[in-house]
Design a binder for these strands. Structure first.
Lengths: 168, 168
DNA sequence: CTAAATTTTCAGTATTTATTGAAAATTTAG
DNA sequence: CTAAATTTTCAATAAATACTGAAAATTTAG
């Protein structure tokens, strides 16, 4: 396969993959494009390569910066802004896990804590089923939280070697 | 908080949570509803409780069955079909991980394997950046695959105690 | 300061995704 | 077998989400 074709396919697939995970297709494609670009790209470069409008490029680049997956870089002698993506995929994974945990898991756990204190007689089947379900979800969620916190802090080699020990 | 209100809030939140993960809101809500229902529910029960149409209920229940998160049950003396959700959340998590891995991670790894064999001179900066990026993603993806395979096979107590050992 | 370059915003529009509801198909009781 | 009950399908429609493009705001070179 030729490089140009391979790039195209990677960007398209990364975009499709993103949408399955609730991530805007264009945002995922911009990220993919920057991952495989040796040099920083300007908004114009991105607009051209993905055939998207300036507004769309601007909004999604901003979102990627907000997720700390993309950085603005200054290119000497250039007025425009340029952008790069973190190339270390392990760092990227940790950053995404960190953000999603903060934005989604933590609020969910907070809600579950509130819902566990529902009024009513525990001998009532309706009440019992509800509180049991919530307590179970809360417990598994709490475990996930601990595991993810550790993963966020871990460096790759440490993580791998630890996993190797358990997951022989 | 009263039970009815707590139920409402749980169903609504589970639905919102689902959409953030690329899961249809109604599908997540039906799942939530079944998780907290002591008895099996019919399509009519679900339609009524969520204020949705028969077609919508039918399609999303089918999808949940396809994900093996919901089961049809026969209620003695009833002609209608009834539905229940697996209540063991650890099992639910494993099942979701299993399905998403099969549907998403495995095809992605397959694609990465193909993209790694791009034509061209490795001394070309463009080629090198691309192949390096793909190889890195492939490597982290392969680790994820192994870890998830083990998680899918693990039972909860084993998983927790193993994690406790590592993630002191 | 002035004006050109660049970035940001956002109302309007397009696209994608989800839902309805009624007809068709299927199932089951008698 | 017959018809009532139930489930499934899917074209039409609604709702949610994403994108455009041009005007406004901001930045910077001179």
């Amino acid at each position: 396969m030729k490089l140009a074709e391979a790039k195209q396919q990677f960007v398209a697939s990364w975009g499709a993959f993103g949408t399955q995970w609730g991530i805007n297709r264009t945002m995922a494609q911009i990220h993919a494009l920057l991952l495989i670009s040796p040099d920083p790209l300007s908004a114009d470069d991105i607009m051209e390569q993905l055939s998207i409008s300036r507004g769309n490029a601007n909004m999604n680049i901003r979102e990627l910066i907000d997720w700390a997956l993309v950085n603005r870089v200054i290119v000497a002698g250039e007025r425009k802004e340029y952008f790069t993506a973190e190339k270390d995929i392990w760092k990227v994974v940790r950053q995404i896990v960190k953000e999603r945990k903060k934005r989604e898991l933590d609020p969910m756990l907070k809600l579950l804590d509130e819902l566990e204190n529902v009024e009513g007689d525990k001998r009532d089947k309706e009440v019992k089923t509800f509180t049991d379900a919530i307590a179970n979800i809360r417990r598994v969620g709490g475990q996930a939280e601990k595991t993810l916190d550790t993963l966020i802090r871990a460096d790759e080699s440490w993580f791998i070697s630890s996993l190797m020990k358990i997951f022989k």
